[in-house]
């Protein structure tokens, strides 16, 4: 029988006999949200797939010790975000990606290389605008714009104050809008 809440899944995960099925349900529940969060950060599917698998392996290893006083969903995003940033750091060290003015990763070229890329379509232009943002601002923008994550939760994911996140999001929105209107 499918488990509905995170609490039920966590409880089942503590029982050896139900551990794998509980984990499977957890993955099914969150896989698409986490995948798209990662994909928007690393752009290329194969990279996103590598990162997301690492995320779930970390979750598997850490779930038993997960403290239920924080939200599972926030914890998952935090792991996914850290894995994304580690991956992008590796890419930087390898020189596999171009960097923006602030030394962050600029993945615009990867966006342009996507299978269905169409420079005239607004949704692709939006992706290019997002990739033009500095790394941290990109995270804030995508978490708020796509995942509609409350600032309170985002502050736990990114370990940044709510005020700073709000300011960052407002700046990001203006930059994205400017990109869409002027390029």
């Amino acid at each position: 029988m499918p488990l509905h809440s995170d609490a039920e899944i966590l409880l089942a995960f503590q029982e050896p006999a139900k551990k794998e099925s509980a984990f499977t349900q957890l993955v099914r529940k969150y896989q698409e949200r986490l995948y798209w969060h990662v994909r928007r950060m690393v752009v290329v599917h194969d990279d996103a797939n590598d990162v997301i698998q690492n995320v779930w392996i970390r979750v598997w290893k850490g779930l038993e010790n997960f403290r239920s006083d924080s939200q599972l969903y926030t914890w998952l995003y935090r792991i996914a975000t850290n894995e994304c940033l580690s991956f992008l750091d590796q890419q930087k060290r390898k020189g596999a990606v171009s960097l923006d003015q602030e030394g962050g990763v600029n993945l615009s070229e990867q966006v342009r290389a996507e299978q269905y890329f169409d420079a005239d379509k607004a949704e692709w232009k939006l992706q290019l605008a997002i990739q033009a943002l500095p790394e941290k601002q990109k995270l804030v923008f995508t978490l708020r714009y796509y995942d509609e994550m409350p600032y309170e939760e985002m502050s736990r994911v990114l370990e940044t104050s709510e005020g700073a996140l709000k300011a960052s999001y407002h700046h990001a929105v203006k930059k994205v809008e400017d990109y869409l209107l002027n390029r």
């Binding site: 794998e20 995948y35 798209w36 996507e114 939006l126 929105v173 203006k174 994205v176």
Partner: peptide, 30 residues
């Protein structure tokens, strides 16, 4: 978002990126 940028609010949030067919259907097998 509506207050900050009505333009962005009107845009579709649909992801233009593609994934391999059935990517999310694969069973988890850890």
């Amino acid at each position: 978002l509506g207050t900050l940028s009505p333009l962005l609010q009107q845009l579709s949030k649909k992801q233009p990126y593609s994934t391999p067919v059935g990517y999310f259907d694969f069973p988890v097998n850890l």
